[in-house]
Design a protein around this nucleic acid. Structure first.
Lengths: 221, 221
DNA sequence: CTCTTTTCGTTGGATTTCCAACATAATATT
DNA sequence: AATATTATGTTGGAAATCCAACGAAAAGAG
């Protein structure tokens, strides 16, 4: 389990030799869940953060009329519930359902924020990691939000591609999505996306092949 | 300034008597900015968190073709830049422009995460606050994302209203938006929103008047 | 290489949204 | 009370998206 955990961003920079003490400090408990069971259900209090060591967990949500939606799939060594735990939710808005027999490490949230005795110096690193995770997720969400709030497919694409150009520092970029994934990410239809890309190519805005795109500004040909 | 700061969620639960020491511990610096100047510009490293004490700041972004977008408006005693600072961005994707002559308190991010000597016990409370802020913003973003990713206006509305019903624990709810704000929040046109609400009323899904909505499930009339 | 599967682009019609304009209702102002 | 202002609902045509279906190209399997 140690090797597995050290890969988890939550424990980045933690020495393997410190891990055991740390887990004790966090009241870590390892539990087995069988397929179909729930780690927590909507309405529960958010008291812990879960790390999937083996197996697979779905975070789901039901609306007023009972329609279920899968919000995300958690695979090893990802964690879940951290935003709810940190926000101190008294009633979780989602449920965590086990899709494959799983082994999950539960961390007590209260132990996470309360810096313990000086003996546990790595606690600082841990909190730093936690904040990094929250902040990065935040960044990713804001970024996606910017793209999705645009009204037309073209605007969404321009917003997304601009972002990538800036990030990669060149107007010839490779994106990490295939067409279907890009469509899902931007919340549009795949076919409509393809069609719009073609139109944009014909309009001289960009060139592309597969995952590779070249944005064309004025005079850049 | 003290009273002002104690209202900022970042300092919740901090005693007024501790504040001065704390600000020292965080290398807090107060700076004046005149209208039109920039607190930071896209491309800068993210090294601090800013708290607007007086004035008004816009967070903006420019895309590849130079189109500007206002992402958010920061008014006292809100903070900004925290997600970038915590995520350790080496190049900020946005700029912070001062819209009205402002007074801004800058906090050194590195001081925030590094728990200092035992003398600064309130540092724990501070970090807890920071995580709470990040986590809550996260929650709000995920929630909004769920609504916006729906394809039709009706689905967006049902998603949003369901959420409110769950949160408020009753199917007769008051929402904090007027029509225009709700339309902006769900990323649709105001008139289309109104039209869709009328259709849904006629279909027997709900009743509404102003900000007050009543969702109707089976047999609930 | 051949066959199968997956990915991508294209098309056309049904559906939905956008947009601008206007009517009415509610609220604020004098 | 009269008027101005703002919020909300309604409408119709233009524009965009969705959706299903299909063909071509690319990738993978045998």
């Amino acid at each position: 389990m140690t090797a597995q955990l050290l890969k988890c961003p939550l424990f980045a920079g933690i020495e393997a030799s410190d891990l055991a003490a740390m887990l004790g400090c966090l009241s870590a408990v390892k539990r087995q869940y069988s397929k179909g069971s729930f780690v927590f259900s909507a309405g529960d209090a958010a008291a812990f953060v879960g790390i999937v060591l083996f197996g697979r967990v779905h975070i789901l949500k039901e609306d007023f009329w009972g329609n279920r939606t899968i919000l995300s799939e958690i695979t090893p060594p990802q964690l879940f519930g951290e935003a709810f735990a940190c926000a101190g939710e008294t009633a979780l808005p989602v449920s965590a359902m086990v899709v494959e027999d799983s082994e999950i490490l539960m961390l007590d949230y209260r132990r996470m924020v309360a810096t313990c005795s000086s003996a546990c110096s790595f606690h600082t690193a841990f909190i730093k990691n936690m904040m990094l995770i929250l902040a990065q997720r935040n960044r990713a969400l804001v970024e996606k939000m910017e793209h999705i709030t645009r009204r037309t497919t073209r605007e969404k694409l321009l917003s997304y591609l601009s972002e990538q150009v800036k990030r990669q520092g060149t107007n010839a970029i490779d994106i990490p999505f295939d067409r279907q994934e890009l469509a899902d990410y931007l919340a549009v239809e795949r076919s409509a996306l393809s069609a719009e890309l073609s139109k944009m190519r014909d309009a001289g805005l960009l060139r592309f092949h597969k995952n590779h795109f070249v944005l064309l500004g004025e005079g850049v040909n």
